[in-house]
Protein backbone atom coordinates (compact mmCIF):
# COMPACT_ATOMS: atom_id res chain seq x y z
CA UNK A 1 0.00 0.00 0.00
CA UNK A 2 2.69 2.35 1.01
CA UNK A 3 4.51 1.51 -2.11
CA UNK A 4 1.50 2.41 -4.19
CA UNK A 5 1.22 5.73 -2.40
CA UNK A 6 4.85 6.47 -2.89
CA UNK A 7 4.51 5.74 -6.57
CA UNK A 8 1.45 7.95 -6.75
CA UNK A 9 3.23 10.80 -5.04
CA UNK A 10 6.28 10.35 -7.18
CA UNK A 11 4.17 10.23 -10.31
CA UNK A 12 2.25 13.28 -9.25
CA UNK A 13 5.40 15.16 -8.43
CA UNK A 14 7.08 14.27 -11.66
CA UNK A 15 3.94 15.20 -13.56
CA UNK A 16 3.94 18.53 -11.83
CA UNK A 17 7.61 18.93 -12.52
CA UNK A 18 7.12 18.05 -16.15
CA UNK A 19 4.28 20.51 -16.50
CA UNK A 20 6.44 23.17 -14.94
CA UNK A 21 9.43 22.48 -17.14
CA UNK A 22 7.60 21.87 -20.40
CA UNK A 23 8.51 25.19 -22.07
CA UNK A 24 12.16 24.76 -21.14
CA UNK A 25 12.22 21.23 -22.48
CA UNK A 26 10.38 22.31 -25.60
CA UNK A 27 12.89 25.05 -26.02
CA UNK A 28 15.89 22.82 -25.62
CA UNK A 29 14.16 20.44 -28.00
CA UNK A 30 13.86 23.23 -30.52
CA UNK A 31 17.51 24.12 -29.94
CA UNK A 32 18.50 20.49 -30.43
CA UNK A 33 16.48 20.38 -33.63
CA UNK A 34 18.18 23.48 -34.93
CA UNK A 35 21.60 22.02 -34.17
CA UNK A 36 20.63 18.71 -35.79
CA UNK A 37 19.45 20.58 -38.87
CA UNK A 38 22.56 22.73 -38.98
CA UNK A 39 24.73 19.60 -38.82
CA UNK A 40 23.05 18.33 -41.95
CA UNK A 41 23.44 21.72 -43.66
CA UNK A 42 27.13 21.95 -42.78
CA UNK A 43 27.58 25.43 -44.26
CA UNK A 44 26.46 29.02 -43.92
CA UNK A 45 26.67 32.17 -46.01
CA UNK A 46 26.77 35.51 -44.22
CA UNK A 47 26.49 38.87 -46.01
CA UNK A 48 27.61 41.75 -43.84
CA UNK A 49 28.85 45.32 -43.72
CA UNK A 50 30.70 44.56 -40.49
CA UNK A 51 34.38 45.37 -40.88
CA UNK A 52 36.91 42.68 -41.65
CA UNK A 53 38.52 43.00 -38.23
CA UNK A 54 35.15 42.23 -36.66
CA UNK A 55 33.50 39.75 -39.00
CA UNK A 56 36.58 37.54 -39.08
CA UNK A 57 36.87 36.96 -35.29
CA UNK A 58 33.10 36.46 -35.10
CA UNK A 59 33.06 33.82 -37.83
CA UNK A 60 36.16 32.18 -36.34
CA UNK A 61 34.57 32.01 -32.89
CA UNK A 62 31.35 30.68 -34.42
CA UNK A 63 33.17 27.93 -36.31
CA UNK A 64 34.94 27.01 -33.10
CA UNK A 65 31.62 26.65 -31.26
CA UNK A 66 29.99 24.78 -34.16
CA UNK A 67 32.90 23.03 -35.88
CA UNK A 68 30.51 21.25 -38.26
CA UNK A 69 29.52 24.52 -39.99
CA UNK A 70 31.75 26.17 -42.59
CA UNK A 71 31.09 29.93 -42.73
CA UNK A 72 31.49 31.97 -45.93
CA UNK A 73 31.56 35.73 -45.36
CA UNK A 74 30.79 38.30 -48.03
CA UNK A 75 31.89 41.64 -46.68
CA UNK A 76 31.32 44.96 -48.46
CA UNK A 77 29.80 48.37 -47.84
CA UNK A 78 26.16 48.38 -46.73
CA UNK A 79 25.04 49.62 -50.12
CA UNK A 80 26.83 46.82 -51.95
CA UNK A 81 25.54 44.12 -49.63
CA UNK A 82 21.98 45.33 -50.23
CA UNK A 83 22.47 45.54 -53.94
CA UNK A 84 23.97 42.15 -54.20
CA UNK A 85 21.34 40.45 -52.07
CA UNK A 86 18.44 42.12 -53.86
CA UNK A 87 19.84 41.55 -57.33
CA UNK A 88 20.63 37.90 -56.64
CA UNK A 89 17.25 37.11 -55.18
CA UNK A 90 15.46 38.83 -58.05
CA UNK A 91 17.33 36.51 -60.38
CA UNK A 92 16.12 33.60 -58.26
CA UNK A 93 19.42 32.93 -56.58
CA UNK A 94 19.14 32.72 -52.79
CA UNK A 95 22.74 32.36 -51.68
CA UNK A 96 22.75 34.14 -48.34
CA UNK A 97 21.47 32.80 -45.04
CA UNK A 98 22.07 35.76 -42.77
CA UNK A 99 22.44 39.45 -43.61
CA UNK A 100 23.71 41.90 -41.04
CA UNK A 101 23.87 45.59 -41.81
CA UNK A 102 23.66 48.99 -40.22
CA UNK A 103 20.41 49.54 -42.09
CA UNK A 104 18.44 46.38 -42.67
CA UNK A 105 15.32 48.33 -43.68
CA UNK A 106 15.70 47.98 -47.43
CA UNK A 107 16.13 44.23 -47.30
CA UNK A 108 13.11 43.92 -45.04
CA UNK A 109 11.09 46.14 -47.34
CA UNK A 110 12.04 43.96 -50.30
CA UNK A 111 10.86 40.85 -48.43
CA UNK A 112 14.26 39.25 -48.22
CA UNK A 113 14.10 38.75 -44.49
CA UNK A 114 11.88 36.34 -42.60
CA UNK A 115 10.75 36.47 -38.99
CA UNK A 116 12.99 34.95 -36.39
CA UNK A 117 13.18 35.60 -32.67
CA UNK A 118 16.30 34.35 -31.03
CA UNK A 119 15.93 32.95 -27.50
CA UNK A 120 18.68 35.41 -26.54
CA UNK A 121 16.38 38.36 -27.29
CA UNK A 122 15.09 38.41 -23.69
CA UNK A 123 18.40 40.00 -22.69
CA UNK A 124 17.76 43.06 -24.86
CA UNK A 125 15.86 46.23 -23.93
CA UNK A 126 12.54 46.78 -25.65
CA UNK A 127 13.79 49.63 -27.86
CA UNK A 128 16.32 47.23 -29.34
CA UNK A 129 13.77 44.55 -30.19
CA UNK A 130 11.76 44.51 -33.39
CA UNK A 131 7.99 44.34 -32.65
CA UNK A 132 7.61 42.65 -36.05
CA UNK A 133 10.31 40.12 -35.20
CA UNK A 134 12.50 40.55 -38.26
CA UNK A 135 15.74 42.10 -37.05
CA UNK A 136 17.94 41.39 -34.05
CA UNK A 137 20.16 44.15 -32.68
CA UNK A 138 23.89 43.38 -32.63
CA UNK A 139 25.67 46.60 -31.74
CA UNK A 140 25.29 50.37 -31.80
CA UNK A 141 27.20 53.05 -33.64
CA UNK A 142 27.24 56.51 -32.03
CA UNK A 143 27.50 59.64 -34.23
CA UNK A 144 29.11 62.24 -31.98
CA UNK A 145 31.29 65.36 -32.13
CA UNK A 146 34.96 64.48 -31.76
CA UNK A 147 38.04 66.67 -31.42
CA UNK A 148 41.80 66.67 -31.52
CA UNK A 149 43.00 67.14 -27.92
CA UNK A 150 46.20 68.88 -29.01
CA UNK A 151 44.19 71.59 -30.74
CA UNK A 152 41.15 71.87 -28.48
CA UNK A 153 41.16 71.89 -24.67
CA UNK A 154 38.43 69.88 -22.96
CA UNK A 155 36.83 73.00 -21.47
CA UNK A 156 36.59 74.63 -24.93
CA UNK A 157 35.11 71.57 -26.62
CA UNK A 158 31.45 71.73 -27.64
CA UNK A 159 29.01 70.27 -25.11
CA UNK A 160 25.77 70.50 -27.08
CA UNK A 161 25.09 70.26 -30.82
CA UNK A 162 24.32 74.00 -30.83
CA UNK A 163 27.86 74.74 -29.65
CA UNK A 164 29.06 73.84 -33.14
CA UNK A 165 27.51 77.12 -34.28
CA UNK A 166 30.05 79.21 -32.33
CA UNK A 167 31.94 81.48 -34.69
CA UNK A 168 35.28 80.22 -33.35
CA UNK A 169 34.66 76.92 -35.21
CA UNK A 170 34.18 78.53 -38.59
CA UNK A 171 36.11 76.50 -41.18
CA UNK A 172 37.17 73.99 -38.55
CA UNK A 173 34.39 71.40 -38.52
CA UNK A 174 34.47 68.35 -40.75
CA UNK A 175 31.33 66.46 -41.76
CA UNK A 176 30.78 63.42 -43.92
CA UNK A 177 29.00 64.53 -47.05
CA UNK A 178 26.62 61.62 -46.54
CA UNK A 179 25.74 62.28 -42.91
CA UNK A 180 22.09 61.67 -43.75
CA UNK A 181 21.24 59.30 -40.88
CA UNK A 182 22.49 61.94 -38.46
CA UNK A 183 20.29 64.56 -40.09
CA UNK A 184 17.21 62.33 -40.13
CA UNK A 185 17.58 61.43 -36.48
CA UNK A 186 17.97 65.02 -35.30
CA UNK A 187 14.89 65.83 -37.35
CA UNK A 188 12.96 63.08 -35.58
CA UNK A 189 14.22 64.18 -32.18
CA UNK A 190 13.92 67.94 -32.54
CA UNK A 191 11.17 68.46 -35.04
CA UNK A 192 11.28 70.42 -38.26
CA UNK A 193 11.68 73.99 -37.01
CA UNK A 194 14.57 73.57 -34.61
CA UNK A 195 16.46 71.19 -36.93
CA UNK A 196 16.10 73.53 -39.89
CA UNK A 197 17.39 76.48 -37.92
CA UNK A 198 20.36 74.51 -36.62
CA UNK A 199 21.32 72.98 -39.96
CA UNK A 200 21.06 76.26 -41.84
CA UNK A 201 23.30 77.99 -39.31
CA UNK A 202 25.74 75.08 -39.46
CA UNK A 203 25.86 75.34 -43.24
CA UNK A 204 27.32 78.86 -42.81
CA UNK A 205 30.28 77.51 -40.81
CA UNK A 206 32.42 76.68 -43.89
CA UNK A 207 32.18 72.94 -43.35
CA UNK A 208 35.21 70.82 -44.28
CA UNK A 209 33.52 68.09 -46.31
CA UNK A 210 35.14 64.68 -46.46
CA UNK A 211 33.90 61.24 -47.41
CA UNK A 212 33.92 58.60 -44.69
CA UNK A 213 33.92 58.93 -40.91
CA UNK A 214 37.09 56.89 -40.63
CA UNK A 215 38.91 59.26 -42.96
CA UNK A 216 37.63 62.19 -40.90
CA UNK A 217 38.93 60.58 -37.70
CA UNK A 218 42.32 59.94 -39.31
CA UNK A 219 42.69 63.46 -40.67
CA UNK A 220 41.55 64.93 -37.37
CA UNK A 221 44.22 62.92 -35.57
CA UNK A 222 46.82 64.26 -37.98
CA UNK A 223 45.62 67.82 -37.29
CA UNK A 224 43.96 68.68 -40.61
CA UNK A 225 40.99 70.10 -38.66
CA UNK A 226 40.26 70.20 -34.92
CA UNK A 227 36.61 69.12 -34.92
CA UNK A 228 34.32 66.70 -36.74
CA UNK A 229 31.42 64.30 -36.50
CA UNK A 230 32.85 60.84 -35.94
CA UNK A 231 31.99 57.39 -34.63
CA UNK A 232 32.54 57.12 -30.88
CA UNK A 233 33.92 53.56 -31.05
CA UNK A 234 36.51 54.67 -33.55
CA UNK A 235 37.72 57.45 -31.23
CA UNK A 236 37.86 55.00 -28.32
CA UNK A 237 39.97 52.50 -30.23
CA UNK A 238 42.33 55.19 -31.57
CA UNK A 239 42.64 56.66 -28.06
CA UNK A 240 43.88 53.30 -26.84
CA UNK A 241 46.66 53.47 -29.44
CA UNK A 242 47.64 56.88 -28.09
CA UNK A 243 45.93 59.12 -30.65
CA UNK A 244 45.15 62.65 -29.41
CA UNK A 245 41.37 62.27 -29.81
CA UNK A 246 38.31 62.64 -27.61
CA UNK A 247 34.56 62.59 -28.17
CA UNK A 248 31.63 64.40 -26.57
CA UNK A 249 28.95 62.34 -24.82
CA UNK A 250 26.81 65.20 -23.56
CA UNK A 251 25.07 66.04 -26.83
CA UNK A 252 21.33 65.44 -26.98
CA UNK A 253 20.56 63.27 -28.77
CA UNK A 254 23.48 61.00 -29.49
CA UNK A 255 22.55 59.52 -32.85
CA UNK A 256 22.82 55.73 -32.76
CA UNK A 257 22.62 53.55 -35.82
CA UNK A 258 21.92 49.94 -35.22
CA UNK A 259 23.82 47.04 -36.73
CA UNK A 260 21.13 44.38 -37.01
CA UNK A 261 20.99 40.81 -38.29
CA UNK A 262 18.15 39.10 -40.16
CA UNK A 263 17.43 35.61 -41.46
CA UNK A 264 16.99 35.14 -45.20
CA UNK A 265 13.42 34.44 -46.32
CA UNK A 266 14.63 31.51 -48.41
CA UNK A 267 17.83 30.58 -46.64
CA UNK A 268 19.56 27.52 -48.09
CA UNK A 269 20.83 26.79 -44.57
CA UNK A 270 18.12 28.17 -42.26
CA UNK A 271 19.19 26.27 -39.16
CA UNK A 272 22.82 27.29 -39.43
CA UNK A 273 21.57 30.83 -40.06
CA UNK A 274 19.54 30.81 -36.85
CA UNK A 275 22.57 29.55 -34.98
CA UNK A 276 24.67 32.46 -36.23
CA UNK A 277 22.06 35.02 -35.17
CA UNK A 278 21.76 33.37 -31.75
CA UNK A 279 25.51 33.30 -31.49
CA UNK A 280 25.96 37.01 -32.25
CA UNK A 281 23.47 37.82 -29.50
CA UNK A 282 25.12 35.66 -26.83
CA UNK A 283 27.01 37.19 -23.96
CA UNK A 284 30.29 35.77 -25.29
CA UNK A 285 29.93 37.26 -28.76
CA UNK A 286 28.71 40.56 -27.36
CA UNK A 287 31.80 40.68 -25.16
CA UNK A 288 33.85 40.02 -28.26
CA UNK A 289 32.29 43.09 -29.87
CA UNK A 290 33.07 45.07 -26.77
CA UNK A 291 36.69 43.94 -27.07
CA UNK A 292 36.64 45.51 -30.55
CA UNK A 293 35.37 48.78 -29.04
CA UNK A 294 31.84 48.38 -30.33
CA UNK A 295 28.89 49.27 -28.10
CA UNK A 296 27.14 45.94 -27.45
CA UNK A 297 23.37 46.01 -27.79
CA UNK A 298 22.86 43.43 -25.03
CA UNK A 299 21.66 44.76 -21.70
CA UNK A 300 23.96 42.78 -19.43
CA UNK A 301 27.20 43.51 -21.29
CA UNK A 302 29.04 46.68 -20.33
CA UNK A 303 30.18 49.06 -23.07
CA UNK A 304 33.93 49.30 -23.79
CA UNK A 305 34.15 52.59 -21.91
CA UNK A 306 31.94 53.84 -19.05
CA UNK A 307 31.52 56.94 -21.20
CA UNK A 308 29.37 54.91 -23.60
CA UNK A 309 26.89 53.52 -21.07
CA UNK A 310 23.46 53.42 -22.79
CA UNK A 311 21.58 54.17 -19.59
CA UNK A 312 23.42 57.42 -18.89
CA UNK A 313 23.29 58.89 -22.38
CA UNK A 314 20.52 60.50 -24.38
CA UNK A 315 20.50 58.02 -27.20
CA UNK A 316 18.20 58.13 -30.18
CA UNK A 317 18.20 55.27 -32.65
CA UNK A 318 18.01 56.17 -36.37
CA UNK A 319 14.27 55.95 -37.25
CA UNK A 320 13.30 52.71 -38.94
CA UNK A 321 11.22 54.34 -41.64
CA UNK A 322 14.32 56.11 -42.95
CA UNK A 323 14.76 53.77 -45.89
CA UNK A 324 11.30 54.40 -47.29
CA UNK A 325 11.63 58.18 -47.26
CA UNK A 326 15.31 58.26 -48.02
CA UNK A 327 15.36 60.32 -51.22
CA UNK A 328 13.36 63.06 -49.57
CA UNK A 329 15.85 63.33 -46.70
CA UNK A 330 18.85 63.28 -49.01
CA UNK A 331 17.56 66.13 -51.12
CA UNK A 332 16.71 68.17 -48.01
CA UNK A 333 20.22 67.66 -46.65
CA UNK A 334 21.77 68.64 -49.95
CA UNK A 335 19.63 71.74 -50.33
CA UNK A 336 20.53 72.95 -46.87
CA UNK A 337 24.24 72.42 -47.30
CA UNK A 338 24.34 73.48 -50.94
CA UNK A 339 25.77 70.21 -52.21
Amino acid sequence: MRLVRTIRVALGASFLLAAFCAPAIAQSNAAAQIIEGAKKEGALSWYTSMSLTESKPVSDAFEKTYPFIKVTVFRASGEQVQNRAITETRAGRWDFDVASLSELGTLIENKLITQYVSPETIHYIKELQDPQKRWSAVYLNYYVPGYNTRMVAEKDAPKRWEDLLDSKWKGKISLDREDYPWYVTLLAAWGRERTDKFMRALAKQDIQWRKGHSLIAQLMTAGEFPLGIVYAHRVESDKKKGAPLEWVNTVDPIVASLHAAGLSAKAPHPNAGKLLIDFMLTKNAQELFRGLNRVPARRDVEPPSPKMDQSKLKIRVVPHDTSTRYNEYVSEFRTIFGQ
Partner: peptide
Protein backbone atom coordinates in the same frame (compact mmCIF):
# COMPACT_ATOMS: atom_id res chain seq x y z
CA UNK B 1 34.25 44.16 -55.22
CA UNK B 2 30.89 43.53 -56.77
CA UNK B 3 31.87 40.26 -58.44
CA UNK B 4 33.64 38.87 -55.42
CA UNK B 5 32.19 36.40 -53.04
CA UNK B 6 33.94 35.04 -50.02
CA UNK B 7 37.27 33.31 -49.87
CA UNK B 8 36.71 31.61 -53.26
CA UNK B 9 37.67 34.72 -55.14
CA UNK B 10 39.07 37.07 -52.54
CA UNK B 11 41.76 39.17 -54.22
CA UNK B 12 44.26 41.64 -52.85
CA UNK B 13 42.50 44.70 -54.23
CA UNK B 14 39.39 43.91 -52.19
CA UNK B 15 41.46 43.56 -49.09
CA UNK B 16 42.98 46.98 -49.70
CA UNK B 17 39.61 48.50 -50.40
CA UNK B 18 38.01 47.02 -47.30
CA UNK B 19 40.86 48.22 -45.12
CA UNK B 20 40.54 51.70 -46.60
CA UNK B 21 36.78 51.68 -46.17
CA UNK B 22 37.23 50.83 -42.53
CA UNK B 23 39.78 53.59 -42.12
CA UNK B 24 42.90 51.52 -41.49
CA UNK B 25 45.11 53.88 -43.47
Amino acid sequence: LILAEGPGNQVLAILIWNMWDEGYV
